[in-house]
Design a protein around this nucleic acid. Structure first.
Lengths: 223, 223
DNA sequence: CGACATCTTGAGAGTTGTCAACCGGTGTGG
DNA sequence: CCACACCGGTTGACAACTCTCAAGATGTCG
């Protein structure tokens, strides 16, 4: 069973302690650490487990035929990820930064509070996917970036504090938003010039005008 | 109960016969016709029913603050639509062309085969939303159009026959793909010049090179 | 200190948005 | 019956935006 948590590509270190955040799974849950850049699993791997982020961040991505990468989602602390249905994983999961995860064997998840977990996972994923899809429907880099920052801020609780921690690299953001690396820099710079955000280093964004960010994200027209 | 099926905005005509395609719901299902352009329900209406398309096509859309319209999905014959959770509808549903629908009271759907229906609906919607979102991540009009045509062809069984029926207008396609009306024309024209499709009128597309369409939709890079 | 990855900015080319005009069918009223 | 308005479809010209390519700045780690 433990070997399932150690795909040959990833140097995951297992911890003895059990997960503590999901009732009913303690006996089967396994905690694991994952260093920056390490893969938790790869696309088409056997989907034996569900994962929950305890700390850090995980990116769920695919690679297209022509070598481009598309990041479907960033999983934040508290988020579940891993294929709910089917035998194989849909995405590759990689740690954006040093992260701690809990792995739940899917057989037990299905057996115990399976339905609830199913529904929760599905509903959350559906909602988040819809929001992202709507943002991507706009072709403007400003709108995409605004929607991305806003959603990340809401999910990480940064709307109140105004302090947003961008754990991922610029290239990650680019692959998530369907933009180029340069467009990400320019757009962030643009938002900073407009006094909507303040860039306090590569991984620190201060939200100065959430209102304006909302307007951009929502009302954003075509281009 | 019948009044629920007749929101004041839509002149829906009810039929006496019950739906015949979903076992266990015949006693509660109501069949209804909806003329081109009519609304089945509006965003934020009370979500009392689930709907299934028997014939025709329904667009699920929202209107942004600045008056733009975004079509999240086109529901084809066999597709379910309507909010699964929550008290209110997420989208406005309008008939693209004269359509026949079946309405299932959600309370009975939840009571009887509720879980299965839930899961089916969620899973289908999630899959379809993901695919669309991935296509939208590309900024190229060609890629978006190719993915749209391909997915519509797969869902309507047009891949085999090669004959695709575009019931919706060009503006509907534009609002679905996040493009302008003119871009839709140009892109279709471009695909026609490349011998990938053949335009046999506003609502008829002949698929001439599905391979090339797949390559465009999948391998499509950023621009 | 040097190598390397990441971050950042600049200049030109390409694609799409914007604006405008035209075409064809349909419905309506004189 | 015909003129007209109207809607959907279609195409062209220009501007704006982003991508591409390139170079430099900053920072991290050996």
């Amino acid at each position: 069973m433990l070997t399932l948590l150690e795909p040959p590509q990833a140097a995951l270190r297992l911890h003895g302690s059990a997960g503590e955040s999901l009732s009913g799974f303690q006996d089967y849950a396994l905690m694991l650490s994952c260093a920056r850049g390490e893969a938790v699993y790869h696309e088409a791997d056997a989907a034996h487990h569900l994962y929950r982020v305890l700390s850090g961040m995980v990116r769920l991505c695919r690679h297209t035929a022509d070598g481009h990468r598309r990041i479907a989602e960033f999983a934040l602390p508290g988020d579940l990820f891993g294929a709910l249905h089917g035998q194989r994983q849909d995405y590759t999961a990689e740690a954006v930064c040093n992260s701690r995860l809990v792995a739940y064997p899917r057989q037990h998840a299905n057996g115990l509070a399976g339905h609830q977990l199913h529904m929760t996972g599905s509903a959350v994923h559906l909602l988040t996917t819809q929001q992202h899809g709507f943002a991507m429907a706009s072709r403007s880099a400003r709108v995409r970036m605004a929607a991305f920052l806003l959603r990340l801020a809401e999910r990480s609780g940064a709307v109140e504090t105004g302090h947003l921690d961008l754990a991922m690299e610029r290239q990650d953001i680019a692959d998530h938003l369907g933009l180029t690396l340069e467009a990400v820099y320019r757009t962030l710079h643009l938002l900073a010039l407009a006094r909507i955000i303040l860039i306090g280093g590569p991984h620190r964004i201060l939200l100065q005008n959430v209102e304006a960010l909302c307007e951009l994200a929502e009302g954003g027209a075509t281009q």
